[in-house]
Design a protein around this nucleic acid. Structure first.
Lengths: 330, 330
DNA sequence: TTGAAAGCGTTACCAC
DNA sequence: GTGGTAACGCTTTCAA
């Protein structure tokens, strides 16, 4: 087990060559006699040699490590994004280093520092707060912002048209005859919340100023969504539709509604967001704004790798257009 | 951005000290004048120095990287396990390197090699096939087997009592009056399939030899579960209960059943496994064998870190007892 | 075509 | 208590 590692030097001495020649042979670089090269490679395999990336990295080469800083890998949205990242990273010979922040700012600061001290070549990050670009200055390696969008700063970003998403969802509800639509979302000030709100209000005002004036935004958390809604209903009365921040919120909202013997969508229509894989199995099947999550992962890694390899990206914003997937809940 | 990194040497010259002294001061090692130590630390902060773990690792120290080799991070079961791993790893100052194998053996071989060449200190692995212990010999770093169990080989393993899980599920169905129970699982030959089958058969034979002789194991895949079942029904007739390998299978099975206008659980009862977070929201809510997935993640990391730090584990098998969560599907 | 030697950032041994 | 130096495994000039 703990047998000492086979190094380039072992290969060299066993062949009576110098380490430099072996290095060149193995990396197909410089001038090496084809025969020598062949011998070296065979010997390397025979001895079970495999390169020590750590040593390579110390020589200024890339380690092939990409840090991923997200809220929670078990959130089905991020799970899919990460899956896409992993797949793409592998194609380029890169590995993913995962850190969850629980959407906590301190954790994020720590994560970034820690990741960098480990020598990652780049970072994929969904910042906890995308309103303060100067906070990204702690980043000393190339990075790509995933699923967020800073108004200022010209970072490379891969995100979704959240305004369109919010508009689509709300418009659909309006088209279905709903007039008392409340939206529920987390208190975080990030582009996804801002954008979806904006889309929501855009659809409302497009319909009438009156409806716009009655717009209602409820702040909550995935776990508390049900309780927040209950509270809201108690004081403000029953809405006829709810545009949930994402499918987790929608699921909680539906559970709460059912608990009060209300029918979905007959009494209250519910539209979610993210279109997680389980939305088909729940009852009623969720109507949701769909995003290609793997695309986000693949694209962000693709861009980051190019940056790590020294490429200067001209295009910096990669925006995806969401689509409404209409099912039974609204 | 691309400003060159602050090294220990920069701190040394700016203070007129030697690198060795600075190193000792920073690491609280050996003899250093308390005053010097203080000065060094302050200067380090001032200059924005942070240790280069890659260089440390080259010196034979631990890099603080743990490789994770699993089927698919987006599988809700693994997502929770990974979450537990990440949390625990962080406590110890370790990072997680994620690789998905899609349950493909070649991918796994590649993953392990690749991870090792990147200098990981240890590996957490859910092997694609846990019947061939000698295949683990490619592992040259400490490793912990997660969610799998080899009959031979004395690896450190963190897994679940799958026999009990299968027994619990089947017994519950039997107690509910079901007599024609088929189980559906993947074709993979891994402890979870073997164990759950065994538990299934154990419950059957405990009831009667006749029932045992009628036991039916259907091999399929999560995506094909519905079709496989349809095929089965066509040739073998309708069972009155299905013990699904996990909740994903169960969800597919239920969808298939509903598609044929069959009622769950009235016509066919369905029990799943893993108790994923969404099982509460689906309709009917899934009865499922529950596991503490985060515990698996935490424990395996805990053990691996201890191994990496040189500890010899006396206890090698960490087994969790599953519990049946009865809801509406069966 | 091949080899010697320097250097990447850090630690550790051994003098001073 | 402090500093010089070798060493970790590898790549990369620069000579030979």
């Amino acid at each position: 087990m703990a047998m000492t590692r086979v190094t380039i030097k072992d290969v060299a001495v066993s062949l009576g060559l110098s380490v430099s020649t072996v290095s060149r042979a193995l990396n197909d670089k410089g001038d090496v006699d084809p025969k020598t090269r062949k011998k070296v490679k065979e010997k390397a395999v025979e001895l079970g040699y495999f390169p020590n990336m750590v040593a390579k990295a110390l020589k200024g080469k890339v380690l092939g490590l990409l840090g991923v800083v997200i809220d929670d890998n078990a959130n089905p949205f991020y799970a899919e994004v990460v899956k896409g990242m992993e797949r793409q990273a592998r194609k380029y010979g890169f590995h993913l280093l995962l850190v969850n922040t629980s959407a906590d700012y301190e954790e994020q600061v720590f994560a970034v520092d820690f990741l960098q001290s480990k020598g990652v070549d780049g970072i994929l990050i969904a910042p906890v707060d995308d309103t303060k670009p100067y906070e990204m200055e702690a980043l000393r390696v190339p990075f790509v912002v995933v699923g967020r969008h800073f108004e200022e700063g010209d970072f490379v970003e891969v995100y979704n048209d959240e305004v369109l998403g919010g508009y689509l969802a709300t418009k659909h509800l309006l088209d279905g005859g709903r007039r008392n639509i409340v939206t529920i979302q987390p208190a975080m000030n990030i582009y996804p919340t801002r954008g979806r709100s904006e889309g929501y209000r855009k659809a409302l005002i497009e319909f009438s100023a009156e409806l716009y004036n009655q717009s209602r935004e409820l702040k909550s958390s995935p776990e508390q969504a049900g309780n927040s809604l209950k509270e809201y209903i108690k004081t403000q009365g029953l809405p006829d539709a709810i545009f949930a921040y994402n499918d987790m919120y929608a699921l909680e909202v539906i559970t709460c509604l059912k608990g009060r013997k209300l029918r979905v969508p007959e009494d209250v229509a519910v539209v979610g967001y993210d279109d997680i894989p389980y939305s088909v199995y729940v009852h009623p099947a969720l109507t949701s704004v769909a995003l290609d999550k793997e695309w986000m992962g693949r694209t962000s890694v693709e861009l980051l790798v190019r940056m790590v390899q020294g490429e200067e990206l001209k295009k910096k914003k990669y925006i995806q257009k969401p689509v409404l997937r209409v099912r039974d809940s609204g």
